[in-house]
Design a protein around this nucleic acid. Structure first.
Lengths: 128, 128, 128, 128
DNA sequence: GTGGTCTAGACCACG
DNA sequence: GTGGTCTAGACCACC
């Protein structure tokens, strides 16, 4: 698996897992139907508590990104389970963009950074 | 008062205050030297405990956005408190952009949304 | 416990904790990865309120000396949080040195005192 | 007068005044018998509250550095009014030295910095 | 169990 | 009157 957890990251571990899986799906590394490692295996690899991984998988399932087939493991499922409002998608962008503005960067410079990040997030197979 | 707190927001109250003040500075509503309302006043307006506001003001001071004079008030102070690395500014962007990608939006569409948000975050003069 | 608080000390309690932990790190008693006692334990040992210790730990985290994991404990983490300018390190020296000068001590005598203090502040190995 | 106050300094204003006068005495710019400007004048020059300067003068008087002659103003008085224990002089040195140690500087390097500072504090007539 | 946040209320230091 | 600190006690998020 390409997942990692960073102790210095301010996000809780379960959130890092959730975001990590989403990133892998977004870039195409994980496709519809791809089986995911078991909770136990991820927990062992990342040296993290079992419950933490279970919470992450549970949230991914709630959001419709994972499909749990009883006795047959977990597979990726692209169809989102809950409807998303664009406002909810824009909100988390704002504090991040505000920080960039406060460093004195121009709108063009910030747009350039965003374009770089988008490119990096879509580069299939780009192991961090 | 230009600050608000939203009970539904997942960020803690003090963080909402911090982000709110930064946004006001970024858009030019608060300029260098502008006095801020007292801790007690903000606390009263927002129906929030005194200490919560004090924590927010303290963090803003640590980051160099406020200059707090003990018995006197608080004023905006743009000087950078700690140097920020661009990597630290890019990281919070990624989960937000990933969510946008997962909705199926194209890079162009996402860049358009970012441009809209940047425009909204700037008020007085779109400088640069 | 190696930490103490002195009611006669003019520094606030949380600052004494911060300085105390830094001193333990500087002398090598606390090394990278060493777990720190929990907030509750320190609070109990020193007969001080929980929040006061939490404030100290938080400041140490902001300065990059501690890595706090939410549900897990706290460990020492030497990585620098913010870059420090030498000028900021020299300033607090000046009032202290001025007081020594005013007692009539020679530069050599003062330098001797400083050397003594440096020796006392280092324990494990006087490296370098 | 050569006194200044810095809003960004963490010390309270009255303490900056106290330290400033002591520094001027230590470097010889103010000598025994030298008259000091009135509280009112200093307050006006520094654009600071009258009471703040009065508190500073009061503390300097308590420590024996100022002598107030009723109706004849205030003059410098080198004989310290209260006995000083060396331990009390060493204590404020420690947090400052600890910070220097934590940056990784060697004892020699730190001693060098101290020597530089001592030299600067003694340079008569060196306007900051 | 851990740390994080918030409240209510108190007292002190500063200007 | 301002901000700074501290307490006691509560509830929540995380592991």
């Amino acid at each position: 698996m390409l997942l990692t957890v960073d102790a210095n990251d301010k996000r809780p571990i379960y959130q890092q897992i959730v975001d990590g899986v989403k990133a892998l799906i977004a870039r195409g590394d994980l496709q519809e139907g791809t089986p995911l490692p078991t909770v136990r295996q991820v927990a062992g690899d990342l040296r993290v508590n079992l419950n933490t991984i279970a919470v992450a998988y549970r949230q991914l399932q709630d959001e419709g990104f994972l499909s749990v087939r009883h006795g047959a493991g977990t597979v990726v499922s692209i169809r989102p389970g809950r409807s998303i409002e664009t406002e909810d998608l824009r909100k988390p962008l704002r504090p991040a963009l505000t920080e960039l503005i406060l460093t004195g960067l121009s709108d063009e410079a910030i747009a350039g950074i965003v374009r770089q990040e988008l490119k990096a997030l879509r580069l299939k197979g780009d192991r961090r």
